[in-house]
Structures are given as C-alpha cells and as structure tokens.
C-alpha cells in the first residue's frame, strides 16, 4: 500500500464538477441513471469477468463435444453389431436411418446441470459475497437487475448449448462416417433438436437463477435443482402407480422428448402441452423470485 497517499491535488483534479453543490440535490440533470440497457450492460460485464463463470461455460462446451464424440462412437459400434443380425438390421432400416440424430445433443443432460448450477450461482453469489449490496444500491428498483441477469443467462445458455451441440455434431460426423452412419446437421429434425435442446437448457438455467434468488444459498440452490431434475424423476420411477406416472410427465426434464418426437407417442404430452409445462416451470419460480426480491431485505 505504498501508493495510498491521497493528496489534495489528486482530489481536486478528480472531482472537477463538484464545486457547485447547490445546483445538485434535485434528481434532474445530474447525469444518466440506471436504464435497463445500462443495467443489462453491467450484468453482462459481471457475467464475463468471473473466471468461475468462464470455467463453467468451457466445461459445458467440453462435455457437450466430448459426449457427441463418445455417443457417435457408441452408436456406430451398436449399429455395426446390429448389422450382423438381419432382423435388427431390418428394424433399423425401418426407422429411417435416424439412429444418429440425437448424437449432437447427447450431452444436454450434463449441460443442463452445469448451466443450471451457473444460473443458481449467478444470483446466490450476489448474496453470499455481499455483492448484492452494491448491485441493489446502484439499481434500487431491483427488478431491472434481476431481469438483466435473466436475459444474460438465457441468451448465454441458449447460444452455448446451440454452438456446442453443433460442434459436437461436427466432431461426431467423421466417427459416424467410419461406421457408414449418416447424420445431416442441416436436416429439419437436426435443427429442431438443436433448437429445442438449447431452449430447454436456457429454461433450466432460468429456473436455476430463480432458485438461487429465492434460496440465496449456492449449495441449497444447486441441490434443489438436482432434486428437481435428477432425483424427482428417479423417485417417481420407483414409486408404482398411475399417479406417479402421470406426475412424471409434468416434470420439466420430461418435456424435451415430447417436443422433439417425430411422431407423437400415445401417453405423452402433445408438443404444445410440453412447451406450456416447461414455460410454467420457468415462469412460476421467476415470478416468485421477483416478488421475494422486491419484498425482502438485501
């Protein structure tokens, strides 16, 4: 701390417009305040200046691409095995060669966990570190800061999932090719899978953000997320009976396959129903988070 001296000249030079305090005191004319665009810019700066955030993003990319390659190889090996059995080969041919279609998005189960946790952390860390005091002193209406964070996490999760799915597809192509399996990344089904998966992961991140804001604790928020996406489906699988089966359909994690199915399977949600269910899973926690954020002390 050798440079800690503040002499008067530094002070003078650094506060040139403050010599007329009388003109101040009214809200008008003292410079711009926190418009939504500025808050969004601030939240984006906060997002990109944390190493831990960047590491989580890199991990997502790595896992997605890695799983793409692994699944490509696994699918190829499976197909090769199946070819030796004429009956299985006939069944596969009947399916229309779509075996490899889910390869690019095969890592989303992990992407949702990482990006969902990132969503939790973005908000919970505000409270655990005390940053919230700075954030909400700058944006005392609170809602714009939360909305800006929501937009940042939605866009970042969507783009990252889309890009890493596409990269996973590119990496898997030569592997699939060596097994004589075809994958057209530009086909409408591929594009649909990529878009729905990306929207889904963005939704999970938004749910994470809301949980982080409600619970204000990183471990608690992430555990709730894991409970909702990993524990609840398994628990409901174990519990026998129609009620459990019915509830399972409405879990957020089970909305992806109805939305991406080529043909509607009986006993599952329609596309629009699945979209509404996923939407509700986002809207309800987000609204609750906003109400609590407005009401509670920071």
């Amino acid at each position: 701390m050798s440079t800690s001296n503040l002499n008067t000249s530094t002070l003078n030079s650094s506060t040139p417009n403050s010599s007329t305090p009388s003109r101040r005191g009214t809200a008008a004319g003292i410079g711009p305040g926190p418009s939504f665009f500025r808050v969004l810019n601030s939240e984006f700066i906060k997002f990109r200046t944390l190493t831990s955030t960047l590491i989580l993003l890199a991990c997502t990319l790595l896992v997605m691409v890695g799983f793409g390659a692994l699944t490509g190889w696994g699918t190829g090996a499976f197909a090769e095995e199946a070819m030796r059995d004429p009956e299985a080969a006939a069944a596969m041919a009947a399916q229309g060669g779509d075996l490899a279609i889910t390869v690019p998005t095969s890592g989303i189960a992990f992407a949702q966990l990482i990006l969902g946790s990132l969503g939790v952390l973005l908000m919970s860390s505000e409270f655990t570190t005390g940053m919230a005091r700075s954030t909400f002193a700058a944006v005392p209406k609170r809602l714009p800061a939360f909305a800006a964070k929501l937009i940042v996490v939605l866009v970042a999760s969507f783009l990252l999932t889309a890009v890493s799915s596409f990269l996973a597809g590119l990496v898997a192509l030569p592997i699939l090719d060596s097994y004589d399996l075809k994958l057209d990344l530009a086909s409408s089904q591929s594009v649909k899978l990529l878009l729905v998966s990306s929207i889904y992961v963005a939704a999970v991140a938004a749910i994470g953000l809301a949980l982080g804001s409600i619970i204000r604790n990183s471990a608690g928020g992430i555990m709730s997320l894991v409970g909702l996406f990993f524990v609840a489906p398994i628990a409901l699988e174990i519990i026998q009976g129609d009620v459990a089966k019915e509830i399972r359909k409405y879990l957020p994690g089970n909305t992806v396959s109805p939305m991406t199915a080529v043909n509607h399977e009986p006993g599952t949600l329609e596309v629009w129903q699945a979209a509404l269910v996923l939407g509700a899973w986002v809207v309800v926690p987000v609204v609750l988070a906003v109400l609590l954020l407005k009401k509670r002390d920071v």
């Binding site: 809200a27 003292i30 305040g33 926190p34 002193a137 700058a138 944006v139 005392p140």
Partner: peptide
C-alpha cells in the same frame, strides 16, 4: 435530498 433513495433517477450519482 427529500426523496426516498429508490426514487432517485440516478442513485449512484446522488
């Protein structure tokens, strides 16, 4: 300055 903190147009400048 006569206004509740959250009602200021530019809180950090105030």
């Amino acid at each position: 300055n006569g206004v509740p903190f959250a009602k200021h147009v530019a809180p950090l400048r105030e």
